[in-house]
Write a protein that binds this DNA or RNA. Sequence first.
DNA 1: GGCATTACGCTACGACTCGTAGCGAAAGCT
DNA 2: AGCTTTCGCTACGAGTCGTAGCGTAATGCC
Lengths: 208, 208
Amino acid sequence: MQSRTPASRTGRPRSAAADTAILAATREALVELGWSKLTLSDVATRAGVAKTTLYRRWAGKNELVVDAVAELFDELELPDLGSLAADIEGVVLQFAAILARPEARSGLMAVVAESTRDDALRERIRASIVDRQMRLVLQGRARAQHRGELPPEPDPEQAARTVDLIFDMVAGAVVHRTLVSGKPADEEWVHSFIRILLLGLVGAARTP
Amino acid sequence: MQSRTPASRTGRPRSAAADTAILAATREALVELGWSKLTLSDVATRAGVAKTTLYRRWAGKNELVVDAVAELFDELELPDLGSLAADIEGVVLQFAAILARPEARSGLMAVVAESTRDDALRERIRASIVDRQMRLVLQGRARAQHRGELPPEPDPEQAARTVDLIFDMVAGAVVHRTLVSGKPADEEWVHSFIRILLLGLVGAARTP
DNA sequence: GGCATTACGCTACGACTCGTAGCGAAAGCT
DNA sequence: AGCTTTCGCTACGAGTCGTAGCGTAATGCC
């Protein structure tokens, strides 16, 4: 999480209960106050710990919220529904459900905005949130190629570019729909979206 | 801009020069400080106006930054390069160039994040930033249908849904590529992206 | 058991930002 | 002229930040 593996063996260990309480309190405060009005003092009070304890574990608001929001994405996993289209629709609906939660809406975009000026924060987001989503794309693509729904890509460099592109298209569209357009990414929308995406992918694979 | 049409006819008029100076100073501060460290006092000093003048015109940081960033999107327009694919690639590259600028990167995501808890702010963003982009999608679609590159859509409700979907796919992918993945939306990427998108669109139009 | 080490809760602190109020002067209009 | 609104300036209370210092609590090692 926020601490590297303890090289220190001696001394009083950090309370694991405090960690979970703080992260839960952070999400609760995100729901009630939003990003800008969230203060670390308030989170500490909610979690029942001292403010100094918070600062001993996290460098600041950014890092704390990244960890608090990252836990929301833990439940994300690729279902096996028999076809690539159904699998993708399933995982995209999960993703949309997470983004519909207020603690994700207010927190995620805020830390992404901050990460444009903070490379360490960008890396933290990538490692704890984005990579988890990216793995689903890789997994789904491999399964589809095994099923024969997508042709295999011999050039690994080209394959990497394609996976990146698919990832940006999927995550970007859902995020934009939910947070910018402010409309729900419901089943009907996801179905239309995935239909266009897959038609485009198989079309592109047919005519290189 | 930020003030409704002046119902007040008498008295000293507001300085238009101050407006442009303030918005320019805001963008400058966004570049140097980023969203979180930007203060209204600092902007006022840079613009050479008093802090109170700022508060007379804008309700707060959110509204000010929305107006400052919105001006960046004024230059967006749909080129006429002969084909739908070329037109879209052209406008998407313009869009990507704007998002590559640091004042847009740090400002845009931050106000979007704030807008998740502030409906008035969301509406302000929609009116001054998003609508301008949406009009390009409508324009490009109409032109493509006139050229015969896309079939006409008889059902207006279905057409509206499709335009919304295209908009979220295009804007979402570019924003995600630029701000989350942190990689440039260069010509090669845009070309691959638009190719898949258009293949999907014509494929979906063929098999309804 | 005693000891070293680290985490914890608590209080207090200077530095900073926020948004507003009050003032006199300036710039328009009729 | 006189009226009205904006402007620059100063000052202010309220709130937040991040840190320091202290005594206490919980563990590992001898």
